[in-house]
Design a protein around this nucleic acid. Sequence first.
RNA 1: GCCCCCGUAGCUCAGCUGGAUAGAGCGUCGGACUUCUAAUCCGAGGGUCGCAGGUUCGAAUCCUGCCGGGGGCACCA
Length: 550
Amino acid sequence: MSPITTEQLRAEVLGAAVALAGEGMSLRQEIALERPPRAELGDYSTNAALLLAPSLGAPPREVAQRLGAELKARLGDGLDRFEVAGPGFLNLFLHPRWFAAALSEVLKAGERFGAGGASAPERVLVEFVSANPTGPMHVGHARNAAYGDALARVLSLHGHEVVREFYVNDAGSQVRKLGESIQALARGEEVAEDGYKGEYVKQLSAGLADAANTEPAELGHMAVEAMVSNMQASLGAFGVVTFDHWVYESTLHSGQPSPVEHTLAILEAQGQTYRSEGALWLRTTAHGDDKDRVLVRSSGEHTYFASDIAYHQDKRERGFQRQIDVWGADHHGYVARMKAAYDALGGDPEHLEMLIMQLVHLVRRGERAQMSKRAGEFVTLDDLVAEIGVDAARWFLLSRSHDTTIDLDLDLAVEQSSDNPVYYVQYAHARIASMLVKAGPERVAAALVEQGNYDGGRAEPEHASERGLIKRLLAFPAEVQEAARRRAPHRVAAYALELAQEFTAFYRDCHVLDVQPQELESLRIALCVATQRTIACSLDLLGVSAPTEM
RNA sequence: GCCCCCGUAGCUCAGCUGGAUAGAGCGUCGGACUUCUAAUCCGAGGGUCGCAGGUUCGAAUCCUGCCGGGGGCACCA
C-alpha cells in the first residue's frame, strides 16, 4: 500500500524514524516534511536524520542513509529513489505512479478537498468590523471586513463552526453628538466644533423627517438605523458574507436585570470589584493589567468597558468556546484589560483572541494623508470598491498579513489595479474553464471517472510540470490548516498565486486537449479540473470571484 | 517612560513552530502572439534580510540590547 498524500507520506517518514530510534525518541524540533528549495533536490525532503543523529550517536548523513533505506522498504515502487544531501537532509524522489495515485485522492475529495482538517473543531464566534455607526466605513474598516470575512471562511472550511457578529455601538455620547450635528444642519445652524461634519451628515439630515424639531438623542438613534442600513449595503457590495448577528450595545442595557447588571453582579459576587472615589472599579491588575479600570463612573453611568465585558460574557453564555475579536490598531490598549476581565469572569483568556489589524495609511502623492472622520476627509469602503473593484480591493487588503501596516495610494491603486495579481489567478481559472468547455462535459466526466479510480497502469505524470502542479495541489490542505491556525488568510492568497503560476507552467509545457494516448489526455483533464476547483476554493476563501471567462 | 506592530530587491510585500544558493508581484532592460484565452510566456538585472551581540552543527527566523517608523497608554467610544 503506497502512501498517496503528503499526510500519509509524512506518517511513513515518522514511522521510519521510529523504526530507527524507537518510540521514545526525543527530538529538539518536530520532524518536517517539506519541499526542497530546488527541483533537483527532489520532490520532498525531511530533516529527520539531522534530528535523530544526536540520540542515535551516528553522523547525520549516515542516519539519513538508513532512514532512506527504511523508507524505501515502506514505500516500495512509490519511492523512485532517495538522496542524502548537505548536512544530512534526506531527499525523496517519488515515482510518477505516486503522483497519479495522489491526484486520484484529490479528485475523490472533490469539492471538499482541503476542507475539514481541524483535529478539534470548535464553536467560534468571530466579531469583526463593528464600525461605529456615526460615520461611513473607511478603508480601515474595509481591511477589517475583508480580513474578518476571510478568516471566518478559512476557519469554517477547516471544520470549525463559525458565527459572525457585528457589534453596534449605539449607546454612547457619540450617537447623541451625531444627533445634535444633524439637528444643527436641519436648522441651518453651525455644527459644533466637536460635532460631525461631512457630506454624509447632510444626507442623513435631509433624509430624516422633521429633523429640526426632533430630540437629538432620538435623531441619533434614527441616524444609527440609517447608518447600519448603509453599512449593510456597503458590506454586501464588498462581498462580505452576511453577518449572523448584529448586536446592539443598547440591548446590553435593557431588561431586568440587563446583561450589564448581570455581568457586574457576577464580578461583584466574585470579589473582583471595589468602590473608590465614587466609582466602581474592576481589579484587572489581579489578572495581568497594569492598572484597575472603572466600570461605573462616579456619575452612575456605565463605561464602554462595562458594556464590552457584558458583551463578552454574553458570548460565553451563548456557548462559544472561542471568541475572536478583530479590532483596529487603536484598540490594542484594550487587549490586556479585556483579557483580564475575561479571566475575572472565570473564562479562559486563552480562548479570547483579540486580533489587532494594523493601520491602512492613505498616501497621496507620496505623502501620508490623515483620515479625519469629523472633517469628512477619508476614503470610504464604497470609494475603494468604486475605484478598483471588489476583487482587486479584497486581494490587495488580504494578501498582506494583518499585523503589518499597509500603505494605500488610491491613485496608484487605480492606475495599477489592472496589474493586480488577482487577475492572474482568475485568468488561470478562466483558462481552465475554457479548455473544459472545449473538451465537453462528457469527456471531462469520463476523465474524472478514469483518473478518480486510478489503480495503477494508466498514464502517469511523466512531465515535471505535471508533477509540480500535483505537488502544489497536495499542499492545499496544509495551507488551509496553516491559514486557520495562524489566523492568516493572506497565506491563501500567496498559495493561490503559486498555484496559478504552477498551472501556467503546466499549460505552457503540456498540451491537454487531444494529446495521445487518450489516457494521458484524461490525466491532464483531471488535473485541470482539480486545479480549477482548488483555485476557485482559494479565491472563495478570500471572497474573490472565480470567473469562467475573462 | 511603559505596552503592541513593523524594518527583507527601486516600490509593495511574502518567507519567521531555525535548515540547503532568501522569494513573489509591480517597475526596469531584452525577446516571444498561424499553437487548448498574450489579462500570457521566456530571459536579464536587482539584497550588509535595520545595527550589534548571544544560543545552535546551522539564524531573515529564537533571545538580549540599540536605532528607525507606526500605533496605544481616559471615570471617550
